[in-house]
Simulated scan of single mutants.
Amino acid sequence: MDNSALQKTGQSQLPIIVTEEVHSLKLKVKDLEEEVSELKKDLHAIDLLQKKPLIASDTVAIGGFWIVAALVVIGIFFI
């Protein structure tokens, strides 16, 4: 009989503790979700403020290649 009495009190107290922990965890999750949302907004603002190059480095490389190729062809014909 003593064993069943312990089980009843343990079962009645356990859900209260668990629900309190679940509630506190839900509050922490909500706070973290708000913080992540604010960080995403900050990252978006930083991306907008950064200057983008007008000419990409690939364009400069291709243009430089054609200039060098043209100079080589001109050099071949004028030598």
Results as ranks from 00 to 15, higher is better:
S57C: 04
D47Y: 01
K41R: 08
I76P: 00
L25T: 09
E34V: 05
S4K: 15
K8E: 09
G64S: 14
T9N: 06
E33V: 01
A70R: 08
L43N: 08
S4F: 06
K28P: 00
Q11M: 07
T59I: 05
A70V: 05
L49Q: 09
K41I: 01
S57V: 07
T19M: 10
I67M: 06
G75V: 03
A5Q: 14
E33T: 05
L32T: 05
K52E: 15
E34G: 09
D58S: 12
L25F: 05
W66M: 12
T59N: 07
A61P: 00
K51M: 06
I74G: 11
L49F: 01
I55C: 03
D31A: 10
S37V: 02
E38V: 07
I62S: 14
N3I: 13
K26N: 14
I74P: 00
E21Y: 03
V73C: 06
L25E: 12
L54M: 10
L6H: 10
E21G: 06
S4C: 07
L71H: 02
I76C: 05
A56W: 01
V18R: 15
Q11E: 11
N3E: 14
V36S: 01
N3H: 10
D42T: 09
A61G: 01
L27C: 03
E35K: 07
K8I: 07
I67L: 13
V72A: 12
D58N: 14
I76S: 08
P53I: 00
G63H: 07
Q7S: 13
V60M: 06
I67H: 05
Q7F: 09
E33W: 01
T9Y: 02
L32Q: 06
I46G: 02
V73E: 10
Q11H: 08
E35M: 01
S12Y: 04
S37L: 06
S4H: 11
H44Y: 08
L6M: 12
I76M: 10
T59V: 06
T9I: 07
V36D: 02
K41P: 00
G63I: 06
P15W: 07
H23C: 03
L39K: 10
A56N: 11
D2I: 10
A5Y: 06
T59D: 12
L49W: 03
Q13S: 13
D58M: 00
L48D: 09
I16C: 04
E35P: 00
